[in-house]
Every structure is written in C-alpha cells, then in structure tokens.
C-alpha cells in the first residue's frame, strides 16, 4: 500500500529547529523554508515590540509631564526620582564575600 503524504508530514518550525540535521535534500529544503519563514515572523514580532516600547515610553513621558504640571496646582510635590540601589559588593562569581583571617 502506498503511503499518502499529507500535511502531517511537513515539519513545523519548532520541529525543524529541534531535530537533527536532515538526511535528504528534500527534508533540508523543507526545513530551510520553514526556518526562513519563522525567522521573518520573529523579526516582525521584534519590530512590533520595539515600536510598542517606543510608543509606551512616549506616552509615559507625556503622562509624567502632565503630572508635573498638575501637582503644583494641587499643592503636591513630585516624588524624587528613585535612586538606583548601590551595587552589592560581589566577588567569587556573583557572591558576596566575608573576609575571615585565621
């Protein structure tokens, strides 16, 4: 009986990334196409994320500016900008050290 090939036989993008190197040229071309498509999709997703981040930052700046205008009207003082915490003294690959002399 001849096995009919169908959609289930086409490697998904995930499968194409995880399995070993394909043995046949047909498989290799199929995987290449899948992975190129996946790469394009991820690049587009990244562009959207970056655009969203920029837009959110712009909106946040506008909100901050408006807050700064409103707070004096209501007699409120703007909260001082948060100071970054001083870096912890680390050593031994990210560990704090306690010197001990014997």
């Amino acid at each position: 009986m001849i096995k009919r090939r169908g959609l289930r036989d086409i490697a998904t993008g995930q499968r194409a990334q995880r399995r070993g190197l394909p043995q046949s040229r047909q498989q290799a071309i199929s995987d290449l196409a899948r992975l190129e498509q996946e790469k394009t999709r991820l690049q587009r997703e990244l562009e959207i994320w970056q655009a969203n981040q920029q837009r959110t930052e712009q909106r946040l700046a506008l909100v901050d500016a408006r807050l700064a205008q409103l707070q004096p009207v209501l007699g409120l003082h703007a909260a001082p900008p948060a100071q970054p915490a001083p870096p912890e003294r680390l050593d031994a690959a990210g560990w704090g050290t306690f010197a001990l002399e014997y």
């Binding site: 031994a92 560990w95 050290t97 306690f98 010197a99 014997y102």
Partner: peptide
C-alpha cells in the same frame, strides 16, 4: 549569598 574569603 555570602562566602568566606579566608586568608592567614
């Protein structure tokens, strides 16, 4: 999160 750095 702290290790000892011991020395004479």
């Amino acid at each position: 999160r702290t290790v000892l750095a011991i020395r004479p």
